[in-house]
Design a binder for these strands. Sequence first.
DNA 1: TTGTAGGCGTTATCAC
DNA 2: GTGATAACGCCTACAA
Lengths: 330, 330
Amino acid sequence: MADVAREVGASTITVSRALRRPEMVSEGLRQRIAVAVEELGYLPDPAARALASRRSNVIGVLIPSVTNNVFADVLAGLYDTVGGTAYNVQLGNTRYDTQVEEDLVRIFLSQRPAGLIVAGVDQSPASRRLLQQAECPVVQIMELARDPIDMLVGFSHRDAARAATEHLLDRGYRVPAFIGARMDPRSERRRAGFCDAIRAADPRARIRELTTNEPSSVRLGGALFDRLRADAPEIDAVFCNNDDLALGAQFAAQRAGLRIGPDIGICGFNDLEVMSAAHPAITSVRTFRREMGEIALQRLLARIEGADDPSEAVVDLSWRLEPRSSTDRG
Amino acid sequence: MADVAREVGASTITVSRALRRPEMVSEGLRQRIAVAVEELGYLPDPAARALASRRSNVIGVLIPSVTNNVFADVLAGLYDTVGGTAYNVQLGNTRYDTQVEEDLVRIFLSQRPAGLIVAGVDQSPASRRLLQQAECPVVQIMELARDPIDMLVGFSHRDAARAATEHLLDRGYRVPAFIGARMDPRSERRRAGFCDAIRAADPRARIRELTTNEPSSVRLGGALFDRLRADAPEIDAVFCNNDDLALGAQFAAQRAGLRIGPDIGICGFNDLEVMSAAHPAITSVRTFRREMGEIALQRLLARIEGADDPSEAVVDLSWRLEPRSSTDRG
DNA sequence: TTGTAGGCGTTATCAC
DNA sequence: GTGATAACGCCTACAA
């Protein structure tokens, strides 16, 4: 930076300002500095910047899994939105473990991040406290809650699951069951939504379900489906906790010689691209994952840039049921 | 850090040493420092550290896409391996654009990263030069090449595709076609492998193929399959550039009333979990994506920690054909 | 609009 | 094995 300053005959601080707050430097000087920066190939040192300003350009993102399609889409939204800005997304993988999450919160905070995005609303009390006291804005994503730490962008998993189950009942299925894997807090809420709908239809109905904490997969969906049918042959529809399971259930049903739709209704959750392309197409609940990443980051940046956010602290992205052949009894 | 030093009656530099190079500090002092660090909840400031040591704990990773399953798996391997170390993975999304990649290389380099991982071997000349001159170790992943920038962990896409196509021919399919989307350099090499096998079987054979630069998806696989069959009804097998396309082709074939295997052979690439769970199960070429991330990072860390790497600079992870019902003519 | 002085928290260097 | 001193490259605060 000193080189650039010498080149244009100004002081380093002026160069610094020309770079970060161009409006504070006169037109001509700004131009000459830009040229010199280009010529000398000067690139600011983020470490020095962070040390001096006591504030880094890091946006910390805490999610439970990198592979899970759901979070992959959120990440795509985040990276798309952060591209071109001066900020850097830094990922922390909590592996569905609130203790790991807490450690990561501490580590991230030690970097004085510009902002933080955390998945879910079930942080440990310590994490919550740390985040509340944090000097940077914080956005929780994926879910809705009454008491956000700061900002929140999500939707109600419970309502969405209730609507999906009501859809099964509306379509004439009498004995829908629930299939779930990787029962994290969001999965539990979906399960609760399923129960809501079943009980609303018949308060004394038995809840038929099969859940596991194993990570979900297509294969597991098939295995759970087979096992559930062996135990409860009367079921005529399944609401699956996510699309991988639904796809696996459909394959298993096909193997068993069932007609998808007439013999067995299948509904997934998230509406991955494959659901509409499958044969037959599978009913699912569309969620706005990429948008969640985009909007969360937009809000965060707005707050970082000092906007006295006039907007709501909570954004409900909702969801949309996508009825398809797999729940068409024909 | 000054607080910790005061607490144990030592100087800051000693605390610094106790943290980074414990063997340089006497047993007793080290213990007392550890206790004080714990008590005071001291966390080192990565920015100050990077500034003073002229070297950050960032491991830069440049990949073309965050959503693509293939890279998601590589990332999972990376994050798993980096977890627990003192290093931080920082992602750069090149969006399949070498110019963006070049910009990101410059930005990453300005952070004095501990190491760099880049996807592919088709960097721009400028990127290549920058990376060669970089002071940190560099690993290219995903592919094999004769002239790695530094280290390399990958496999031959061309060989893998050739083997897949030979498998189709061995199984008795006479007119295999190629379906490809998002024709990046690796896809092109797979296409070349397909052509190798076809020409080896019959030098005068016409190459039947349908490719597009659109991002791949299940739906697109179905559309390409239908279009290809309309133009060339004689085809009796398809080698798809990736598993999404293969799954879509299978759904489309089922819609058209074809028997998968007997009437039409289908082969994918990467062997995502869904392939073995599908109905019928789909033949694919298994690739070791997670392992690629793990090994790339292990090598990088070994070099960073100063091991005079006795190991090869190039690791060939190879691939494995997984024959299934979708290429069984019965 | 521009410049000066001082310090951000850590580590390299060189003594002891 | 331990400590004093001087950076590292930039920014905040204040002054001109």
